[in-house]
């Protein structure tokens, strides 16, 4: 049998991407040995001394990793739940409307925050939260209340962060679900109406099931990423205020600070490795879970 020639041309077309992925995704994977080193910038990854698990020991005994992980998990859970409910409810409401122009305007307004970077968003929210000039304190003052030092009161921040996260993300989610609904034949809903179904029954038994596959996929993605925090949201919006760390310091900001401010690359790498490993297991788990629910809605 004649052997096929080596596919040079196709390989060459794939090569640039291959090299870039090798360098920027796979090389850093070997860099995780840093987590087991007392890393020294002068000596580099190859020359730094190995110190076993002491970086991890430090993370666990000081308790730092527990608190940032807990913050990351519960705030992400809060964002996932509010985001999912918010987007689906808005998509359902939007679907009830008929005016094409109005729908377009609402969609554009809902989705614009998605195109603003977190840095620009942080500027926008300063105008509300600035303790001296911010509009929130003015309103509180007008109502006879006491001004709040927003950037040093951790208690309010889970709520503020959830609201800001919703502001930025809900539009895109709504657009996505709306696009799914727009692809469904109107006949389904008309048949339900003829059968005498109420609006809520129609939504529950007909409309929502159309959204389940999309909801499942987005949920898997979200659960798989639950140990990863949105760095910009947690770093820029609270203005990196130390007083807020108890509720705004997440794994990603912790790793960043350990690397840049505390100059502890070994420890930062250890925290990053823990995050990557847990995230890896979670994606696999979430996918297996999705496969059990419905064979067709898995991610891979």
């Amino acid at each position: 049998m004649k052997r096929k020639p080596f596919p040079w041309e196709l390989t060459l077309l794939a090569l640039p991407a291959l090299v870039l992925v090798l360098v920027f995704a796979y090389l850093p994977m070997f860099g995780i040995v840093m987590a087991f080193q007392n890393f020294d910038y002068q000596k580099g990854v190859l020359g730094s001394p190995f110190v076993g698990l002491s970086n991890f020991e430090f993370l666990f005994t000081t308790g730092a990793i527990w608190s940032v992980t807990a913050t990351t998990l519960w705030l992400n859970l809060l964002f996932i739940v509010t985001g999912l409910i918010g987007s689906v409810v808005l998509a359902l409401l939007l679907y009830e409307l008929t005016g094409k122009k109005a729908i377009k305007v609402y969609q554009t307004v809902l989705v614009y925050p998605n195109f603003m970077s977190w840095i620009i968003a942080s500027f926008m929210f300063v105008t509300f939260l600035n303790p001296r000039y911010g509009m929130l304190n003015q309103m509180i003052g007008a109502l006879g209340g006491e001004a709040v030092a927003w950037y040093s009161e951790p208690a309010y921040w889970p709520f503020i962060l959830a609201l800001v996260s919703l502001w930025k993300g809900v539009g895109m989610g709504c657009l996505l679900y709306y696009a799914v609904l727009a692809g469904v034949e109107r006949d389904y809903f008309e048949a339900a109406a003829i059968d005498g179904a109420t609006k809520l029954q129609t939504i529950r038994h007909i409309t929502l099931p159309f959204l389940y596959p999309t909801m499942t996929i987005l949920l898997i993605l979200a659960v798989g990423g639950i140990v990863r925090a949105d760095f910009g949201l947690f770093y820029f919006v609270p203005q990196d205020s130390k007083a807020l760390y108890p509720v705004t310091d997440v794994v990603d900001t912790y790793v960043f600070r350990a690397l840049r401010n505390m100059n502890e690359p070994g420890m930062a790498a250890a925290a990053g490795l823990l995050q990557s490993s847990v995230g890896f297991l979670l994606v696999l788990g979430a996918n297996a879970w999705a496969r059990r629910i419905d064979r067709d809605t898995t991610l891979f």
């Binding site: 992925v21 090389l27 850093p28 994977m29 860099g31 690359p265 990557s276």
Partner: peptide, 19 residues
Amino acid sequence: FFLFFTMLFSGGLVPFYIL
């Protein structure tokens, strides 16, 4: 698979930064 695996696992910020 070579490409897909990078969506599942990463070396994290620190080795990337050093690189």
